[in-house]
Design a protein around this nucleic acid. Structure first.
Lengths: 245, 245
DNA sequence: TAATTATCTTAACATATATTTGAATGACTA
DNA sequence: TAGTCATTCAAATATATGTTAAGATAATTA
């Protein structure tokens, strides 16, 4: 008799990228209560100023964290792929300090944060796994600061593309050659601290140099090593269990 | 009979900025084993690639986190003031993903991370406080991404100055008017994603507009509100218990 | 199918920030 | 006290990125 596979296995898979869980941990985690919901593109999952009571987990589709300047300029501070928890950053905070929005249509499982906190408290290894997940996210924030602060547009974009490739790959979401970038050039600019126009110029420049190939938003990497070199990309900051590249 | 005051009270004070601890928690925390050491300016406390075994806490002086680009460009990703723990970001990670360096001469208490992890495990409220501390740091990383990605040099510098003022204030480290900035304009540039030359121009420009006053590295704020407005500064992202400004 | 809208592309031009260099100032050392 | 060194300041020039605008392409809706 097989239990219905919980959609939370995706999150489990994600957490096990960085931490070791045993069978009992897995059972406990999959026993978490949740509700399912589908969101349209650009839906808000968390709003700055909200008191976070739920903890959303992305099951399909993509999402991002975003902050706005007083003058209305937007900065995307992280991008999220299926399996990733979207509210661990607020798990112990009373007021949300940024917005979380879907990028595409997305299925989301929502877990009451009390249940999650209780689980983290009672099962130390799960608590650690959650902690580790937020530490890795923090590491990615730091790399983004470096990327935006100190790399020029070409390297910056290349770095972004490399990171996305590796993260998709780790979650087993890479179907064959390259991937479909789930965002417009405007949004890409907001993630890179650039203008949409300049993103366009920069993409083209990578394309002309043969570092990427494009078809609409589908991107592939005919010269991965050269791209990685230009990007100054090393996966250390992703803290993958088995270091790749 | 009064116990010798442990230097760890500084860290306690810092953690209690965001979390509630009871008397037993305080006793347990102050009972942590530690060793004291003084470092000269620019000493490395953590090196990227290291396996972090200790957990440093800054008792006096200043420190920063830093990452380097393959081309050797430096980006400072955070600044730390007395009382702040410097290794929570690596508490559950196996390899350091960035460098931590002293900015000035600094006294540091070093705690074995096994002891700290054990304490976090056995006393839930301390575990939470540590978690919260890293979440707030992550929030600051996000604000820095926004600051570097979407604000021009004047606002960016102003924002940095505001943040430093508030954080010093929260730790009770602000002696009277303004403060002494513990860094060169070169380092300031590395924190802001700017060039030292442009930092110089920008500081002068704030000074000319009467938003700051300078004497050597001592800075004061004759028009705090105007500076805060230019900086687009709101302290929400610092998650202070009592919201200030 | 046509019409509407979002996104991508391109070009000309504007500007913020970087680069280079060197002099002035102050801090530290012999 | 002089001398070295790091830091600050300043000016000229270069360049990466931003701005504005408009046409082209693709997606969506009527």
């Amino acid at each position: 008799m097989t239990a219905t596979p919980s959609p939370l296995v995706l999150m489990l898979r994600k957490l096990e990228t960085h931490a070791v869980l045993d069978a009992a941990d897995r059972v406990a985690m999959l026993a978490l209560p949740y509700t399912l919901r589908t969101y349209e593109p650009s839906s808000y999952l968390v709003r700055e100023g909200d008191a976070p009571e739920q903890c959303a987990v992305l099951l399909s589709g993509f999402a991002y964290r975003q902050k706005l300047t007083g003058a209305g300029m937007r900065q995307i501070v992280s991008l999220h792929i299926p399996g990733e928890p979207l509210d661990f950053q607020h798990l112990f905070l009373d007021v949300a300090d940024h917005n979380v929005q879907t990028l595409t249509r997305a299925e989301v499982a929502t877990i009451p944060r009390t249940a999650l906190r209780e689980l983290a408290r009672t099962r130390a290894s799960i608590g650690n796994a959650i902690f580790i997940n937020t530490l890795v996210e923090a590491s990615i924030f730091r790399e983004w600061i470096l990327n935006i602060g100190r790399r020029d547009a070409r390297s910056r974009l290349a770095h972004f593309l490399c990171e996305f490739a590796i993260r998709l790959d780790m979650q087993g979401l890479t179907g064959g050659e390259g991937y479909e970038l789930p965002m417009s050039q405007e949004q890409l600019g907001d993630a890179l601290g650039l203008t949409a126009v300049h993103v366009n110029r920069t993409i083209k420049s990578l394309e002309i140099d043969g570092l990427i190939t494009r078809n609409r938003r589908r991107i592939s990497f005919p010269q991965w090593d050269a791209l990685r070199e230009l990007a100054d990309f090393s996966s250390r900051y992703l803290h993958l269990a088995q270091q790749r590249l």
